[in-house]
Design a protein around this nucleic acid. Structure first.
Lengths: 135, 135
DNA sequence: CAGTATCCAAATTGATACTG
DNA sequence: CAGTATCAATTTGGATACTG
């Protein structure tokens, strides 16, 4: 399961992934997907990263309803699951970029279908005349 | 106990949908989808219901890792969101069936893409020779 | 059968302040 | 900039017992 770049044991993983089951070892396909995608902000963050690398602050700005803390935690989990990688530039001021792995990019169809449905739903809620936002 | 927030919540909605935002009124399509689909068991339950009506017990058997209580709660939320309907037959012993609404069925592409990805993921985890389960 | 009710532990999350 | 740390409040979830 630990296909991520870092060969770290997870002593603090108990902190960030307490109740989640080990990824993939579940009953059906949908559950397996949720074991990776099943956080409130994960699909949103991943969706933004479909477009390419993003810095931490950019992700925060794109996800204003999530707190900085939540974004950090969710990114860490996604990193541990091998969905994205964290690129640290040894600069001052610090610069960190997040990028989907190949594995993470394989989630694109799921994320796009989520967006498609959500936009249709929003259109229904807002009335058929309002402009569709591109996130 | 003064609720000083802008939007007043419905009295009983506070019980079953506490932290969730009002469905659909969110920033991007993915978030909108999550406002409806964003419960741990919801996608799984809905996925099973794609095949047709199911009784409460059947859903419990199909979702063994969720407790009866959780299944009840998630079903209630989905019902409130108009995703499924609850059909009560006035019989003894009681019989209740759950069925997707038209709105709920519109989620089919999302659910199927989740299953597809999850099964590919499971195949990767289990090794390429194990048989694929149909949930 | 299809739930509720209750209790309780554990986990999630927000707000805020602080740091290399 | 990109986070941590800490505290507190809320929510989730399991176990169990009970009911029309």
């Amino acid at each position: 399961m630990n296909v991520s770049v870092q060969t770290e044991i997870e002593p603090q993983a108990a902190e960030t992934r307490p109740r989640r089951r080990p990824a993939g070892r579940t009953g059906c396909g949908v559950e397996a997907t949720l074991s990776v995608l099943g956080g409130v902000w994960k699909p949103v963050l991943l969706f933004h990263l479909l477009r390419g690398k993003l810095r931490f602050n950019a992700l925060c700005r794109l996800t204003p309803r999530a707190t900085q803390r939540m974004i950090t935690l969710q990114l860490r989990e996604l990193e541990n699951d091998g969905v994205l990688r964290r690129i640290v530039y040894p600069e001052v001021p610090p610069k960190v970029e997040y990028e989907l792995t190949e594995f993470g990019r394989s989630l694109e169809p799921v994320l796009l279908s989520m967006r498609a449905w959500g936009e249709a739903f929003q259109a229904r809620m807002d009335g058929p005349d309002k402009p569709t936002r591109t996130c």
